[in-house]
Design a binder for these strands. Sequence first.
DNA 1: TCGGCCTCATTGACTAGACAATGCAGACGT
DNA 2: ACGTCTGCATTGTCTAGTCAATGAGGCCGA
Lengths: 261, 261
Amino acid sequence: MTSRGAGPIYQRIADDLRARIQSGELGAGAKLPTEQALTTDFGVTRATVRQAMQVLVNEGLVVSERPRGHFVRQIERLTYRPQKEWRDRPAHPELDQFMDEQVELGRKPSQTIAVELAAPPTDVAARLGLAGTDTVVVRKRVRYLDGTPFNTNDSYFPLELVQGSEIMHPADIGRGANQVLAELGAEQTHAVDEIEVRMPTPDEASRLEIGLGVPVAMHRVTGYTDDGRPVRVVRNVLPGDRHLIAFERTRPTKTEKDDKQ
Amino acid sequence: MTSRGAGPIYQRIADDLRARIQSGELGAGAKLPTEQALTTDFGVTRATVRQAMQVLVNEGLVVSERPRGHFVRQIERLTYRPQKEWRDRPAHPELDQFMDEQVELGRKPSQTIAVELAAPPTDVAARLGLAGTDTVVVRKRVRYLDGTPFNTNDSYFPLELVQGSEIMHPADIGRGANQVLAELGAEQTHAVDEIEVRMPTPDEASRLEIGLGVPVAMHRVTGYTDDGRPVRVVRNVLPGDRHLIAFERTRPTKTEKDDKQ
DNA sequence: TCGGCCTCATTGACTAGACAATGCAGACGT
DNA sequence: ACGTCTGCATTGTCTAGTCAATGAGGCCGA
């Protein structure tokens, strides 16, 4: 009976617990058996039980709340609708449309803004056409919802472009950074979006209070002026357990949609 | 000197190795010191060194190739451009636009297709407006590039809708499943896209040969007819270490782009 | 009644081993 | 020269412990 599954013991313990989670026997937020209980259940050492737990934690299924125990992770994703941003006008100018939508749902948004001068990271340098020895202005923002961090939003500008402007002041820019850029003669009319999926760096994990087993989506936007000069790079980091990106499409012409099979 | 970093020893070992990777001292594909070497370097047990290794593996920075050693992961992401699909016509009708693009780069694509009758997963059932006891037709496809799995593409249809049609045949549908749906009187004119980021399930991990520390993006498409009836749900699973989603935008009117700060 | 202290269950960190599994390279035989 | 076999280095799995850290709940005194 216990010999059914193949592979090492800790995998079978993990499989057993995973099945109990997926079947609903252990629902979201439920407490898992203690490590001690599992050692007697399966007749193994605590180290082996611990290995099984780690499998589940790394899958993002389980969280450990020391010393209370292990619990089935509860995931609540808020839907992020990029398309809204083209259509609606923000009701609260100091917030963007995403936060705006959440306010209507009764949540309390907040944010922190910090401005730094630094050397550009390699990906930013490449996209802005700068050398690693150049200097960029970074506006680092963390957005919170009901007190917990929700995503980060770091904007990089070439120093020479925004020198002395409002962008270097660590406060919210009511009319938007793009407006300021336009006033500086660098109006942004074209953008390239890139999304990559990976595990967070330790920095990102601490800034966003990301637990083990939670990946992030990095959304990078490079903004260009009319004549193709890059003037801004934005890096948004979205924790996977808190975001669901959603958008809608209507078939434009006779052309088919994305995939066929 | 070794007392600088805070926290447990294994974290300091992991930090040390991470720094050496990020500094370039250990480049992509480089072999890390053996566990044995690290035990003597840091004066700890192999179990502690192993814990440090696991941190790096879970971050997706390092892969273990037993028994050759641990190596710095090499990531090569192919850019996936959803927008291309609206514009270009596929040169090879049996491939979609993504694969088509890769052929031009000299890569060899292939795919497997399996068709099953099954009960719908809960997310699919909810979007198709079905009960868990209903039956759906699933077309499961795995796409390969140069022999390694690249992504999966599972399409779910209500059984009653596609009963007896070409969709139930486990071969490629040259003119596209949407065309077949249209011939069945269920033309798809509207779609909702959802993207969520998470760790792969064990099933997904084995189907896509995903290593530890690699998350996935799940791209779910629900297709509707003109009168709002859902006729199809597609679930694409994209491993994070192989995909970079990219698209471009030009400012439509006077409206600002996505974010300001 | 309320604040502070103490106990305790539980997870985290680490030691010191043993044996298994597996690519690779070098020795060996044909 | 070529296939095979064997040994070895390295990671994987597991045992059997010890001590530390920490949140929660109960006890106790003011």
